[in-house]
């Protein structure tokens, strides 16, 4: 309902891998579409999600429960969850790149938006994007590496926004 005061969602995005990039951007874009005020604080590895050149990858060796699926071939073949030992997932050169492209392909096949697409929608809908200044300094990022419209700030900047929120989540 368009009451006097809209609901507010405050998110912290702390992870920068492809799989963990989805929850904040899905929740933020959907909340904005539900007429909520939304802000995301991008901190630590999450800060990389604000880069113009998004290069988020998925690391299967750190996700033991992750089903490895093939995005091509007959349905029966696509449904197989391939058991990949960590010794391969963690040591074979290029494994992460391969797993990333398989995940992207599977997502696209299933009609899931790309991270870039969801992020663009967030920007278009006026989601407040706050980049963590401390993380920038620590990892050596400069503001021109980020997309336009990013506010920079620290814990206090986020907490001021979150203090008046109805939903607050750490991702």
């Amino acid at each position: 309902m368009s009451e006097t005061k809209p609901k507010r969602l405050a998110l912290i995005a702390s992870q920068g891998t492809l799989d963990w990039a989805y929850p904040p951007f899905i929740l933020a874009s959907t909340a904005a579409a539900m007429d909520m005020e939304v802000g995301i604080f991008f901190t630590f590895y999450g800060l990389t999600l604000l880069q113009k050149d998004l290069s988020a990858k998925v690391a299967p060796q750190t996700n033991p429960a992750m089903p490895m699926k093939m995005p091509f071939g007959p349905q029966g073949f696509q449904n197989i969850s391939w058991p990949i030992p960590n010794v391969i997932a963690g040591n074979v050169p290029g494994f992460e790149t391969m797993a990333t492209s398989l995940m992207k392909k599977t997502f696209a096949n299933k009609g899931v938006a790309s991270i870039e697409e969801l992020r663009d929608i967030c920007v278009e809908m006026g989601v407040k994007l706050i980049g963590c200044q401390m993380t920038m300094d620590v990892f050596g990022f400069t503001k021109d590496q980020f997309i336009d419209g990013v506010d920079l700030g620290g814990a206090a900047t986020f907490l001021e926004f979150a203090a008046d929120s109805d939903i607050s989540l750490f991702v």
Partner: peptide, 11 residues
């Protein structure tokens, strides 16, 4: 389309 695209497009 999969979640949340139908919602976003509808909006």
């Amino acid at each position: 389309m999969n979640c949340p695209l139908p919602i976003l497009k509808t909006k």
